[in-house]
Amino acid sequence: MSSVMKIENLQAKIGDKQILKGLNLELEAGKVHAIMGPNGAGKSTLSKALVGHYDIEVLDGDITYKGKSIVEMEAEERALEGIFLSFQHPVEIPGVNNAYFLRTALNAKRKHEGKEELNAAEFLRLMKSHLEMLGMKSDMISRSLNEGFSGGEKKRNEILQMLILEPEVIILDEIDSGLDIDALRAVSEGINKMKDGKRTFLVITHYSRILDYIEPDYIHVLKDGKVIKTAGPELVPYLEEHGYDGIEEE
């Protein structure tokens, strides 16, 4: 298999508490990987470690992306290289225009890739085309970033950013939490649109609900800071019935 990201013996702590305890995981390029596991297993910590969040201190092990170690890489550098995190709780930034923010982010990426920056008109056309697909109102262009957004609006806005930035590795941290059925459909549609056999997805979730919409290729069970089992999508109904307790480390 051709792997885009490889996590080897990753040990990481938040504050004084070690959360990841020798985690191994290989992400196959172009595939959808789902990470499932009980509360406190280290799912969010893993997503934070991959994007270089300041809470995380890596104690040992390595994360390689396209063959290069990224453990020492700044967060913005990883983003520019194509790693995207859809946040579980997107933060509100008052007074910062949503379109302005997104255009700045896109142009930072384009510049990094040696492409021409988009002007305001070009960008607006691009943004509008995605808004409609996600069922978002056009006032999303002028509203402040996530400010006063409902839970569903925030998640749709994360997906909007993903569509515009076109990342290569997409980490979706509890993307379905707090979504009603319409929002879930819209969000899934956005995600499925990005599935082109080249982009890689890491879907972090408690519940199997989202997996009805985004079909995973692999299920990884995370428990006590380690991946204890990797299987195909047939594992999902088993987990639903038996929970995580019956899964033994392989």
């Binding site: 913005e76 008052p94 982010a105 930072a108």
Partner: peptide, 25 residues
């Protein structure tokens, strides 16, 4: 830190992120 990190995760460097938040304010 969460606001700054959010912007940095989208590829915006720290200085531009600070200035964006301040301008919004």
């Amino acid at each position: 830190d969460e606001q700054l990190f959010y912007l940095r995760q989208r590829g915006i460097n720290e200085e531009d992120a600070v200035s964006m938040i301040v301008h919004g304010f």
